[in-house]
Amino acid sequence: MPWRETSVMEERLRFVARLLEGEGMSEVCRAFGISRKTGYKIFNRYKDDGLEALTDRSRRPVRYANQLPDPVEAMIVRLRQEKPYWGARKIRELLVKRLAGDVRISAKSTVHAVLDRHGLVSQARKRNRANKAVGTQLSAAPGPNDLWCADFKGEFKLGNGNTVTP
Score class of each variant (00 low, 15 high):
M1F: 15
R80V: 00
N145Q: 09
K132I: 13
I105F: 03
K153H: 04
T38K: 14
E5F: 01
D146I: 08
E27T: 06
V164L: 07
M1C: 12
Y46T: 02
I105R: 06
T110S: 09
N160T: 02
K90W: 02
R59I: 04
K47E: 11
V62Y: 10
K47F: 05
F32M: 07
A133V: 11
A113K: 15
V16M: 10
G154S: 09
A31K: 02
I42W: 11
K97W: 10
A113F: 08
Y64P: 11
K83T: 07
R127N: 02
V134M: 05
L51V: 04
Q67S: 15
M9S: 03
I91E: 07
R4E: 13
L51Q: 05
G22P: 03
R12L: 12
K157L: 00
T55Q: 15
A107G: 15
E155I: 01
G87S: 05
L120Q: 01
Y85H: 13
K153D: 05
L79H: 07
V16C: 12
L68P: 01
F32E: 06
P142M: 14
D151E: 02
W3N: 12
R60P: 11
S7E: 15
I105L: 03
R63E: 12
I34L: 07
D56E: 10
I42T: 04
R4F: 08
A17F: 06
R14C: 05
E5Q: 04
D49Y: 02
R80G: 01
F32R: 13
V96L: 15
T55W: 13
G119C: 00
K132P: 10
Y40W: 13
S7W: 08
S106A: 10
K108Q: 02
R45K: 03
S109W: 00
V103I: 08
L54E: 03
V16D: 10
S139F: 09
R80F: 05
V8C: 05
T165H: 14
A124K: 10
C29A: 05
G24S: 14
D49I: 00
M75I: 00
R92G: 06
G143E: 09
I76P: 00
V28E: 01
W3M: 12
S35T: 03
E52I: 04
A140G: 10
P2F: 03
L147R: 10
A113Q: 14
D116P: 01
V62H: 15
A31L: 08
C29H: 02
F15A: 04
E93H: 15
V96E: 11
L13G: 07
P2D: 13
R129T: 15
D70Y: 00
T136L: 00
R18N: 01
A150R: 12
D48Y: 03
R89G: 09
I91G: 05
P84R: 05
N131Y: 06
V62T: 15
M75T: 03
R30K: 12
T38M: 08
L115F: 01
L68I: 14
